[in-house]
Design a protein around this nucleic acid. Structure first.
Lengths: 268, 268
DNA sequence: GGAATAGTGTCTATAAGACAGTATCAA
DNA sequence: TTGATACTGTCTTATAGACACTATTCC
């Protein structure tokens, strides 16, 4: 960190947002259509350059978030995701993006932001599978954001950020099922979320009716780290079939799958 | 992400490194003494500006890493940690730092880098407790890096990055104990690490002698995600004493502790 | 044989997973 | 009464935690 004769290279900073929400039981991400030239017309994550020299990065993320969604900032969970700064990721030059992950309760309609470019909720599956092609390295960013959300659901109270202020346990279960892409047993889910003291707290005697028996309402409790965690069911990625006892003391298995994916940065 | 009349503000990018290793059973971080003016003479994380306009961020981190440590890059785990860009964190102006977390096997001596400024391994406890004061917001970065390491030890094979290519199960246990700051039961640890297939694989019939019975050697296996995870023992942060059954249907507990710490960015 | 380290087996308590029926409301 | 949703209880199995001894080498 020493400043010598040579002057360090300045770069342009952008803030990009992976805004996740639940719509009709599906995990969706907010995409905007690019109106400008690099990747014009393609869907992309909402975001933009730092507003002015003195703007905090987190403030810029909040600003972009309220530009795209009509949400009060307090209701939305927002955290830094990662930095994407590979050379060549932006044809305009060296542009480094600080990606953020935002979790919002189900928003009523695909809101159009202040810019005329239309915004739309797209199921993340369409992005992850490649069916929808995104500008820049935004598909990688979405992938990382979804993975972050899936992991944090296990160990933190992040799931409540997908819900309104008051919610039912069934709604909370639907959050887990949608984000993880699995089905959970209702009885075991009830047992587990209620075993974590401070995760959800009953919100008065209020109830709500949807046709059947009214559901008890809860709100997010003070506990933000979940212990014990809600472990996500194992993906069916075990060895094909354990033949007898040990396959062989081969000391070097052929790496069945499980790719390392630590260093971000690449993508586009 | 649109470019209009106003030109976006360029910022200076630095790369800072939290390099962790084990020395004498203690988790240590590499600190250098600053030779230049901002915070001159204070200990700080190794790091520096992006070398040239086209340098990849991860490459810059690797470059800084090999400048400070005499390690071949292949042996060292390196991943992006977070971005720290708060205004005012650097008195020279708007400097945004991409912090990285590096895990290295026990290095022989406090190596001095290419710059004459001396480098030293410092127990992380001294940094976390505030006994050692760091330049910039580097204490916050160390805190985040250590927490990242502690968490990743549960779910990934990161612990093997603290070990040499060949290691014993006892050494691996010492890694967990040092990073988590807890003691683990030897028998349960043996059972658990061997239950995760592909985590560690026996490295031939080779053995090694240290005075007692020779220990079997292992090397890191292909598995990078640990399932089931090695859950870290619960910190003794439970409620004081569950009185009878339920404290009271008060619907709003007084938030016993557990501070939220999601958004980084602040610190200094 | 003694010192030093490596490695293992069992029992118990708790958590997880599978499973089906009752409760409460509206129409 | 029916339909629709909310909620619960038990049994079985797996995992976690506590615990003490045997094994192998060097001196």
């Amino acid at each position: 960190m020493q400043v010598d004769e040579w002057s360090p290279t300045p770069v342009l900073l952008t803030v990009d947002l992976v805004i996740l929400t639940l719509r009709e039981g599906r995990l969706c991400v907010l995409l905007v259509e690019r109106g400008e030239d690099p990747f014009q017309g393609m869907p992309a994550l909402p975001g933009g350059f730092l507003g002015h020299a003195g703007e905090e990065i987190l403030d810029a993320a909040h600003r972009e978030l309220s530009e795209e969604t009509a949400l009060v900032a307090e209701c939305v969970h927002l955290e830094q995701l990662a930095v994407y700064g590979a050379t060549g990721r932006d044809p305009r030059g060296r542009v480094v993006s600080v990606a953020h992950l935002a979790i919002a309760p189900g928003l009523p309609e695909p809101v159009a932001g202040t810019d005329a470019s239309d915004a739309a909720w797209v199921p993340v599956e369409a992005v992850l599978s490649g069916a929808v092609e995104l500008a820049f390295d935004h598909r990688r960013i979405v992938t990382d954001g979804v993975e972050r959300a899936r992991t944090k659901l296990e160990h933190s109270a992040l799931a409540t950020a997908f819900c309104a202020e008051l919610f039912t346990i069934t709604e909370l279960q639907q959050v887990y099922e949608a984000v993880w892409g699995t089905e959970l047993d209702t009885r075991n889910f009830y047992r587990k979320v209620q075993a974590v003291k401070g995760f959800i707290v009953p919100a008065g005697p209020a109830r709500r009716t949807t046709g059947g028996r009214p559901a008890r309402l809860y709100r997010a409790g003070p506990r933000t780290v979940l212990y014990p965690p809600l472990i996500r069911p194992a993906p069916v990625t075990e060895e094909p079939a354990p033949s007898v006892e040990e396959p062989a003391p081969s000391a070097q298995e052929p790496a069945p799958s499980a790719p390392e994916q630590d260093a971000k940065q690449e993508g586009e």
